[in-house]
Design a protein around this nucleic acid. Sequence first.
DNA 1: CTTGGTTAAATGGCATACCAATTTGACGCA
DNA 2: TGCGTCAAATTGGTATGCCATTTAACCAAG
Lengths: 248, 248
Amino acid sequence: MAQRQYQHIAARLKQELTDQTFVVGTRLPTERDYAQRFEVSRTVVREAFIMLEIEGWVEVRKGSGTYLLERPARSPADGDEEIGPFELLDARQVVESAIAAHAAQRISKAELLALSSLLERERELLAREEAGQRDFEAADSTDQAFHLGIARASQNAMLVEIAQRLWEQRRSTMWRRLHGRILDFSYRGEWLEHHQRILAMLRKRDEEGARDAMWNHIERVKEVLFALSDTDDPGFDGFLFDTPTAAH
Amino acid sequence: MAQRQYQHIAARLKQELTDQTFVVGTRLPTERDYAQRFEVSRTVVREAFIMLEIEGWVEVRKGSGTYLLERPARSPADGDEEIGPFELLDARQVVESAIAAHAAQRISKAELLALSSLLERERELLAREEAGQRDFEAADSTDQAFHLGIARASQNAMLVEIAQRLWEQRRSTMWRRLHGRILDFSYRGEWLEHHQRILAMLRKRDEEGARDAMWNHIERVKEVLFALSDTDDPGFDGFLFDTPTAAH
DNA sequence: CTTGGTTAAATGGCATACCAATTTGACGCA
DNA sequence: TGCGTCAAATTGGTATGCCATTTAACCAAG
């Protein structure tokens, strides 16, 4: 596995905290428990908890335990109606393309380099995958890093926050289910091309080009998602088409 | 000292990275070095590095070392840093203009009517104000209702949520202070004209027109805000120009 | 039955030791 | 002289063990 283990465990913990019903204030299982359950050392779990602590999910009390704080991420069970995949993609299309355009005029050379190395990483992962080594976690986090990196390049903290919020939505169960498909069905090469095109526009500081490239990228993701919903998975379409914007 | 040592060490590391001149990309001293220097175990240093990694300061490479990334312009977890007025307006400009364009193709007749009646109300309030009856609260809430109404017209719950989040930011003390000025200095007539132009574009379902109208509206708000910062209010500019995007 | 203190178990904090990946440079061969 | 190879040193990764704090269970005194 490419990623640092603590990040992997942290992702699983977050998933558990969002999916499962842990009431706010609950004491979570101990580090030792999780270590045993995930079959890693307590050190790794501890580091994962540190990540959650930094991100504001939990509070760690020495000698007592780890406690769930109010969730920073929007949780479907908070009474908010869950956002469907197509609706979320629409929102991302609108917002991220605008952010990309803005970033095109403000991105630094260092940030261009950072994005470039992310794409290098995507290329590597893709090659490995073709060799049979799949690493969904790594692919997913690289994808996210690229998109959030663009938001960061806008030099605007509010836009970064908004972009993060959009990506957090993937945690919802409904969405997670589809997400794997998108990154799996050998569309990864296509996404890489899209990302390269976006980066090229940012490099040229081409505002309109960046906007269009990002727009088309997400447009294509929507198309793929739509096509995938025609597969033979029973009950797959069921929830897809409840969303207002799903009727394309 | 912070409760957990890693936080203390992380703070010292950040200070060192800010003060000292470590060139971007430099390999930092090893975990063992810092452990010795700070007289703590390598574990603690390692946890501190994890914090820096999460916050985007450094990249950690197994077997190689820890490398300084471009210093994040704004560190995410340094406590929720307050967003400055110009930064917020930039974000609103980017996001709301994109939302307006999206809404232009989806707004319903009922929503057009609702927006129209909001403008009617703006007109009323303006007339009353000229007669000496000021009602800041009403003017403010009408303004917000118009902008959020457009977000709602996008038919996308996520976009509505984002727009709300943007408007919530005005409640911050720093921002509130300026906000009164913008709505007071008899710019209200101008804002009304802008809103009418935006609504007209939405009526025509003119995507680009709506985008531009919203963009120009907020652009003008920024100009006014900038001009107002030249007034004689002592300490007024002080905080305004600390924000990265303030240097127009 | 209540209350207070004592104690033992549980839990996170920290340090140490060993593992694995990477880097470096020395050595040998062309 | 230059380059390829390989082994040792370097460095982060992980596991384990012990320490300090907190919690709660228990018992004795009132």
